[in-house]
Nucleic acid binder design. Sequence first.
RNA 1: GGAGAGUUGGCCGAGUGGUUUAAGGCGCACGUCUGGAAAGCGUGUUUCCCAAAAGGAUCAAGGGUUCGAAUCCCUUACUCUCCGCCA
Length: 426
Amino acid sequence: MLEISRIRNDYNAVVDGFLKRHLPADTIQLVDEVLQQDELRKTAQAELDQLLARRNQLSKEIGSLMQQGKREEAESMKQSVADIKTAAESLQDTMNSAKERIENILLQLPNVPQAIVPQGRTADDNELFRDWKGSLPAPGDKPVPHWELGKKYRLFDFELGVKITGSGFPLYRGKGAKLQRALIRFFLDKAIDAGYEEIIPPLLVNEDTARATGQLPDKEGQMYHCTVDNLYLIPTAEVPVTNIYRDVIVQESDFPIKLTGYTPCFRREAGSYGSDVKGLNRVHQFDKVEIVQFQHPDHSDKALLEMVEHVAGILDELGLPYRIVRLCGGDLGHTSSITYDFEVFSAAQQKWLEVSSVSNFETFQTNRMRLRFRNADGQNQLAHSLNGSALALARVVAALLENYQTSDGIEMPSVLIPYTGFERID
RNA sequence: GGAGAGUUGGCCGAGUGGUUUAAGGCGCACGUCUGGAAAGCGUGUUUCCCAAAAGGAUCAAGGGUUCGAAUCCCUUACUCUCCGCCA
């Protein structure tokens, strides 16, 4: 959620940012409406405060009159307090409805893209931040797609997933399950080596938590909702892990705060269909190791690049061809001010699959979460939050199997062998 | 699921309608004392709104009663204890 003060003080930059996102005109007009409502709120608040001050004063006087036994005088004063009360009630109503409208609008407005976010409307306009320098596996080599490899070597089973749950819930078995576990441990160890504290969070979260990181109301339909208990299955570890710091005031010396967590992730992916959802490309349940940082605003840009290099280093070690893309304004997620996507090349599908998304949210999440730190001036100031996938399993597995296949088996990258306990799948 | 007890500042904890302007303590910060420190003494220390002063809000949340609510009433949430069930 944007800070209202930022919209007040930085009106032009906010509107320009929304234009960069290609938001519809009626959404951009909400910026003007929210400022009007804010003025209304401020005026009403000032008047109300005066009335309440008067009431408090009169009540005190009534109290002392009563103690002195001057009942008559006290009674006459009561009437003027009653008048104040009526006026205060209507001001309170004005203020509450303005506040409600402001909140409602702010929840709809996305983050403002950073200056270096490229212009553009769709994913085609994203900027290639770092291209793959090596060669790509050619289609002429006739690589087998991962869903066939999975069947051939008994690594995972989509039909059983359908039987047990429904489509998009893969079941891993044998070396497929072990590979899954190996990758999780490898990714966690890399994060811990980089100074992140490991967290195992709850997988179901309440409404407040989902709202604080921006999943509600923006992505309500994307989460599984347990209506009986009003809890949501997490779409990413970001949600519970970031919320550890909801309503917390930290010391400046606590930065950087670095957390990591492995969790399964649940996404309804409503409306998805076609070849994009084949195999492990897009599933309702997948495993992911997430990294989260809370930073001093002056250092978040640097932290973002550090996180990008962290993910790049892991993909280097796995030996997977990948490229890094800087999302354009139109493709940027609601809560992000800048995002780098990582895509690995799938040999059999001859296309790039997104395996990681690393973003700086600046104060967008921390404002809603009220995560602040006491700055050098002794003021409480909003921290910056960042996160990234390091990494999302299902698509990494898909690329790994396809890119490391040989005619008689699948080789394991050497860094994984200590984790898998086997060198090849055959 | 049943029964009961709770929720007050960074923490502990007092407070059953008006000197509560939330006592007192701990912690923390600054000052004083000291050769230096500890102890002692003094001062300060919730958060939010408003450009700021003044002021207002804030005792789990929301509503109500009252001239006036941490305090009384209602609703909700959460925590703890015991019982039941259970990996």
